[in-house]
Design a binder for these strands. Structure first.
Lengths: 208, 208, 208, 208
DNA sequence: CATGAATGAGGCTTCATTCAT
DNA sequence: GATGAATGAAGCCTCATTCAT
């Protein structure tokens, strides 16, 4: 039997999932609170028992989405073994894989970007994104630095730069895939990472 | 003395510039037509002499922005000389440079992405973006392929993949720079491109 | 206690009555939705819970008005007894009487005519009017034909023509009364019907 | 060669004709000053050289229309000869004929009615209509009274009532014809007038 | 707690009118 | 005189939010 608090959390989560689908499809402005209530099969008024406002709900969706993708990334990273090159390749692969699983929610990311660009919620979103990107770059840079320390990668490599570009490419390839159904982001990422690894390795042939 | 048609075009452009500033600052939904009229120092009704609707104006801003960035990219490409590696590095540099010049309008791009994700204008935006990315990838891939034909780059390189990642990294690094003032996208791009070029070159040392 | 559906119908009717008064006074274009809301003592937004648009509300007022006058006419007709002449005279009398009761809403009819003449709602109104006039003419013509079969009226009478003129005169006399306070449509109608009946009866003296 | 004043009057009339067509098609509210200017092949601003406002122009159209129909009616009346019955029948016929000629402008009448019902111009229109109907009734009543004096019509006839009904029937039959293409107002009017004349004559057979 | 009917501030858009050319 | 680009008041409608049930 669930405590009342757990009940509440469950319902909150339920609403967030419903809202995520609707926001993904129609965008923040295009979404009506009534839409969300309908999708969650609850009354419009009930939404306000769980969230203060539309913005609050949207931000809650953002937090949920961020937690999900972070969790996925952490799993990817923690499960790594082998050389830095291998681990980098596997990380790229598994990040892409896990994001592709949520592909239909990718439009949410675009909405979040836009929200951090110019909405009234700008600050909250922007701060969160800054931190998230920084964290992610740091993790990847650490991996690269490790590879440099092990002599896998050349000393002229700037870990932060390559990390930023790699992290960025994961976003950007999904973005391009979103615009174009015929675009294959997985293969593209694989090929690109292989080149980057070989580049970092100094041009030496790399076995993955 | 200007012809009436030229006058009209001038004023249209004037409104588009004003609108671009306001949309960039407040986003599509956050912007009121009255804001734009004020910024353009014209009456609210005058906007409708030049544009059918808020959406039409927004899309016109998009077209203008797209033309501007395209033009900048074309200049970069046409002015290239030297080896494929050099030309790639210069292209990257100049694309980043020219986009950075419009940095304060970068939020527009996020708005455009969001618009193609879920607004009612989705189709128009999405189609345009798909084409633009494809065109850009094609140009860059051609450059890489050239490098392969000249023996600069290894035969195992997949030009389309690297092109997509490069194009994507330009977007993505600007995005990260937008979130974080301390992030330097120019240097990052330079470092990344160098690695990619060395990766494509295989064993060959590359002079940039 | 009323069911929710009944409640809704009641409120709808309430709004229609309020709207009828305002439309009657200011006409379709002269009426603002806010006026109607004020008169109905509800919020502006509430109107849209019950009607899709101003036009929809206007047409609903029309339907209500048409139902009311139709109902009145049907009562008049069904309650008839006696000779065709008597019934015709009584019908005329009671139609005029019942329409005079709604005299202050007669301007609505003029608005409806105008709406069927040239508004965007033209088709809906026009079709309805065509049918209503046809139905009414048919009923009156049947009455006249009956009189002909009973030998009350001459054989050279064209029932449809007289019916159309009688039905028309009811409209037209109210119209003239509307323009001129000193004009007495009831007496006028009575005198006219008497003449028409005598005319249809040919040589026969008619007792009313 | 025309004087400047005549020039002005000509152009004024030209605008009125153009406006009449547009108002007839779209109604007062549905008509835009720009529409009228286009139809008159003049600039929007020019309209205001000739008319103070949209309402002024509309009323001018009304005056023109009223003058036209009055003139037609006067011609009908003045040309009459023969018995009162004959003259009445001919009057009816020629009024209907002349109005049918302007059939495509009949919607204007509905607009005028509506304008006198509830527009801001109500008073001007209403007063004019009151007078016009009164005048018309007076003319027809005089004709009937003449017939009574000559012994053509019975003494129990109330000339004003029959006149009102006849005048009304001309309006009303055109109205019904407007709603229903299959309705023949001319024949209907003929048949009705014949009955009315016979009724006034006391049921005696009347030769027309 | 849950609901959904009611609300009204807010924003897009229209169009009669003006006035500089 | 004629024009039509510019204007801004006005009005329809939406939708986040409230609150009585």
């Amino acid at each position: 039997m669930l405590s009342s608090e757990q009940q509440k959390q469950r319902k909150r989560a339920h609403i967030i999932h419903a809202a995520a689908r609707v926001f993904a499809e129609k965008g923040f402005s295009g979404t009506m609170m009534a839409d969300i209530a309908d999708h969650a099969r609850i009354g419009k008024g009930t939404l306000y028992e769980y969230f203060d406002s539309k913005e609050d709900l949207f931000f809650s969706v953002f937090e949920w989405y961020a937690r999900e993708t972070e969790a996925a990334a952490k799993v990817s990273i923690s499960a790594l073994g082998g050389s830095a090159s291998e681990r980098l390749a596997i990380l790229s692969e598994s990040v892409m894989q896990s994001w592709l699983k949520m592909k239909d929610l990718f439009t949410l990311v675009m909405e979040f970007w836009a929200a951090s660009a110019s909405s009234q919620m700008r600050k909250r979103f922007k701060g969160y994104f800054r931190q998230a990107y920084e964290d992610f770059r740091t993790v990847v840079a650490a991996l690269i630095r490790e590879g440099m320390q092990h002599g896998e990668f050349q000393e002229d490599v700037v870990p932060e730069s390559v990390a930023a570009a790699l992290v960025g490419s994961w976003d950007a390839l999904l973005l391009q895939a979103w615009f174009d159904d015929r675009f294959d982001p997985l293969t593209t990422a694989r090929n690109h990472v292989a080149i980057v690894i070989r580049g970092m390795a100094g041009g030496a042939r790399v076995e993955l």
